[in-house]
Each structure stands twice: as C-alpha cells, then as structure tokens.
C-alpha cells in the first residue's frame, strides 16, 4: 500500500430550504433585534470609486415561474479589477411577490485576461448544491476571456451576458432549465 493522501472529503451540501432568510437576512425576514443589519446589503461603500451600475433579474424554474424564495450572493473585483477582502460581496433576495432581485454595485474592472464579471452563487429550496455562475456585461471586450471562450455551443455564451436596458442598468435573468438554461460553473 502506498502512503495515504489524507485529503478530507468536503462536507456534503444540503438545500438552503425555504427558510434561508431566517439565517442569512433575518431583518428582511421580520426577525429584528438580533443582528443590527443583514449582512451584504451593499458590496461597496457609498464613496467607493467606480461607475455605479444596477443589475436586475429573476431566477426562473423549468415551468417558467420566477423563484420568489431564492437568495443570491455576488462577489466581484472593484473598478480597477482588484479583489479586496472587505468589499465586493453582497447578498440579494428575490422579492416575495415578483421574484425579482437587484444588485446596486460598481462596474468591475477586468481581472487579467478575464473580462469584467461578477460571480453569482444561487441557493433556494429545491437547489441541492449552490449554483455558481457569472454576470458579464454587454458591450465589453470579451475576446480573451478564458471562461467565455470555453462555452460550447457558442450560443450559450449569451446566457452569461447582462443586457444594458438603460445606461448603467443591466438585466440578467437566470434560467435553471429549458432552451435558455444558464451556463452554471464547476470551478
């Protein structure tokens, strides 16, 4: 027998369930007085440098319904393409009626050869392992991006490109299944 490699297996994932708000955004869930603020309400300080943008979207299930209980987290570089530990992260919850979520942030800069992008992590009832994807932006130079260039068939690249509906306002819908299924990542 050779030596053991001694890698510990990762703890298995379980669904976040329908009550994820209690643990992650308790004030939003109406449980006030335990935490002063829900974590991740804004990814950057109000006076942070960079171009302010808004990303809005919904997460659709296989029947075309928007998930009204989904929670998302975003992680991104700043306007200069730098990841800094105390900024760049946010938590979004879908509106309980419309299923729409919104991220008010700064347009990230390119990170080396990677085109500007925001990582998204999606959890909800019925999702057994948090889903990772990325928001890229319409109009950016994405030719050298190593992730987008791996997507096959090429037409699925569009599922990761947010569309600019008004200046600085982007739309990014996520489709869990179907013809428009979003590209999810195993990174």
């Amino acid at each position: 027998m050779p030596q053991s490699l001694l890698l510990l297996p990762e703890t298995p994932s379980q669904t976040a369930g329908p009550y994820v708000h209690i643990g992650c955004v308790p004030n939003h869930a109406g449980i006030s007085g335990i935490y002063a603020d829900d974590p991740g309400q804004s990814p950057f300080a109000k006076d942070a440098a960079g171009k302010r943008i808004t990303v809005t979207g919904s997460v659709f299930d296989g029947t075309g319904a928007a998930l009204n209980d989904v929670m998302l987290e975003s992680w991104q570089a700043d306007g200069d393409g730098i990841y800094a530990p105390y900024q760049g992260w946010a938590r979004m919850v879908a509106d309980a009626h419309t299923g729409q979520w919104q991220l008010d942030t700064i347009k990230p800069g390119p990170v080396g050869p990677q085109a500007p992008h925001i990582a998204l992590w999606i959890v909800a009832r019925g999702i057994n392992l948090g889903l990772l994807t990325r928001v890229y932006f319409e109009g950016d130079d994405q030719l050298t991006d190593p992730l987008l260039s791996r997507i096959d068939p090429v037409r699925r690249v569009n599922t990761l490109i947010a569309q600019e509906t008004d200046p600085g306002c982007y739309r990014f819908d996520i489709h869990l299944q179907g013809d428009q299924e979003t590209v999810f990542l195993d990174i």
Binding site: A65, A77, H117, G126, I127, R134, R150, Q177, E181, T182
Partner: peptide, 18 residues
C-alpha cells in the same frame, strides 16, 4: 428539485482569482 435542477453539464475549468 425537479423543476429547479439544471439539466445540462456544468462548465468545468480550473479556479481563477474570482
């Protein structure tokens, strides 16, 4: 999980700074 599960393979690649 039935209507909330992606059906296509995930895109696999080495981790990046992100």
């Amino acid at each position: 999980s039935v209507v909330r599960s992606p059906r296509l393979p995930k895109l696999s690649m080495p981790s990046t700074r992100t």
